[in-house]
Amino acid sequence: MKFVSPLIPGTLIKRYKRFFADVKLDTGDIVTAHCPNTGSMKSCAEPGWKAWLSKHNNPKRKLAYTWELVENHLGHLIGINTHNANKLVAEAIQQNRIPELTGYDKIKPEVKYGNENSRIDFLLTQSNQPDCYVEVKSVTLLEQDWGCFPDAVTTRGQKHLRELAILAEKGQRAVLLFLVQHSGIHQMTVARHIDPAYAAELQNAIDAGVEILAYGCELLGDEYKVSYQCPFNLHKKVDF
């Protein structure tokens, strides 16, 4: 995936009201950028960290800038735009860079399904084999050398797990894919210390046959793409 325009460097001043971030550009100008991330962004939005913005020329947009990446105090690059997760996964599937999801000839995004009025991120289809339902979650929280999801209580995420579990019990292939947008994360677990209900639903989903995948992405030159697999350990406990 390539960004729509060259990224513009700056320094984060603050993130506020969830969807806004003030950034001082390297030119000295201070701008307000759209923050496309509804999560807590725990450990991803510290004032003074290096930030990169994309700029859009659409006159209908209230904010010309979008916050895309941040670099933490350890030099880790973090993709904070959760909308990029599905773009990255779709491209990786199309380019056969996720071995577990090869062999399908059609990829349908945002398909309605389930009993709780849900939409699956991707429905993969191929004649003569069961459909594959893929739900994607963006991961940016690093704690004690482990990537953790979620970074805040998510009733929506719990609902998705219930929907996937029902699919798996009916014999469909159901996959939960954690897309790691943090270059410091190379192993993953569930953040049961943040959302124990999500952890319980995840255990139920796995017991029902839902597959868990975790892949990380990197910025390589001017291209941002899925590039490595992360081991997932459901039972790892991150202590506090």
Results as ranks from 00 to 15, higher is better:
4 V>E: 15
4 V>N: 15
7 L>A: 08
13 I>F: 01
13 I>S: 11
14 K>N: 07
23 V>A: 01
25 L>S: 10
26 D>Y: 11
27 T>H: 03
37 N>M: 01
38 T>W: 09
45 A>S: 08
45 A>T: 11
50 K>S: 06
56 H>F: 04
63 L>E: 14
64 A>L: 01
71 E>D: 07
72 N>K: 03
75 G>M: 07
75 G>H: 02
77 L>M: 09
78 I>V: 11
78 I>E: 09
81 N>A: 15
81 N>S: 14
83 H>S: 08
87 K>V: 13
90 A>S: 11
94 Q>G: 05
104 Y>W: 07
106 K>N: 11
108 K>E: 15
108 K>V: 15
110 E>D: 14
114 G>D: 11
117 N>D: 11
119 R>F: 07
127 S>Q: 10
129 Q>N: 08
134 V>L: 15
136 V>D: 01
137 K>Q: 07
141 L>H: 13
142 L>A: 11
144 Q>C: 03
146 W>Q: 01
147 G>E: 12
151 D>M: 07
154 T>Y: 07
157 G>M: 08
160 H>T: 13
161 L>A: 06
168 A>Y: 04
169 E>S: 05
169 E>A: 13
169 E>W: 06
171 G>N: 10
175 V>S: 06
178 F>K: 04
182 H>D: 06
197 A>Y: 12
203 Q>V: 14
206 I>D: 03
210 V>R: 10
210 V>K: 03
214 A>G: 06
220 L>V: 05
221 G>T: 05
225 K>T: 15
232 F>T: 00
232 F>G: 00
235 H>D: 07
236 K>T: 00
